[in-house]
Design a protein around this nucleic acid. Structure first.
Lengths: 109, 109
DNA sequence: CGCTTACGTAAGCCATCTGTTACACATGAC
DNA sequence: GTCATGTGTAACAGATGGCTTACGTAAGCG
């Protein structure tokens, strides 16, 4: 789950979102953000090391592409928790009622 | 997506995993980790501020419970990307073959 | 009332992260 | 070759993060 650390940064999430729409060159990406190009270069490095993006050289340009596999891993990590909110949505009223009843008894309120 | 930053830390992910199995007191949680209790207290604070856990006082104990809503948000954030790896799984063989041709000349499967 | 238990918080230390400016180094145009 | 273009890296400053050792505080017990 190294991807989580990479995705913790908002700029990197935006980069990922941009790349989801298609490949882009490094400079082209950098132009979308209010920070300097080296800063974006670093972000790209982090994303690369997390396996979230892949680069290929195209002449003097570096073209970045999203690699969705770590996102898929994240999805898998999330899977076991899904029943928690599914349950909550399915039986919202009863869950809340049950919880409130239990609390009320305990608190004596 | 503040939850992503909270979940970037492995200890906090473990806490979340523990709480997925049921509520626990702060000390009980701290006992599961090789760090000191104040460190866990801080982690719990971060999780609380990210909305991932809720606390209730039970006498002098603080009982923590997982709140799955931020996880659900994370799931929603992830949703638009799902088509990417679904697509990729379809064409996995070709993708991998192309990527690895440089290293392995062997091509059995 | 003390004393213990179960916590949270404050202060300080060190590592890591993010940003900047300055620089190195290929690629392409001439 | 010379110069511009595209991009990564180095070095540094400032902020943030996580850990530890005190310390504060409220709930229970005698």
């Amino acid at each position: 789950m190294e991807a989580l650390a990479a995705l913790a940064d908002p700029t990197r999430r935006q980069i990922v979102a941009l790349l989801a729409a298609g490949e882009r060159g490094a400079g082209e990406l950098a132009g979308q953000f209010p920070v300097t190009r080296p800063a974006i270069s670093r972000h790209l490095r982090v994303l690369r090391e997390a396996g979230l993006v892949q680069v290929r050289a195209e002449g003097q340009r570096r073209v970045y592409a999203l690699d969705p596999r770590p996102l898929s891993e994240l999805d898998a990590w999330l899977a076991p928790y899904r029943r928690l909110w599914a349950q909550r949505l399915d039986a919202l009223d009863t869950e809340i009622a049950r919880g409130r009843r239990a609390r009320t008894q305990e608190d004596g309120r």
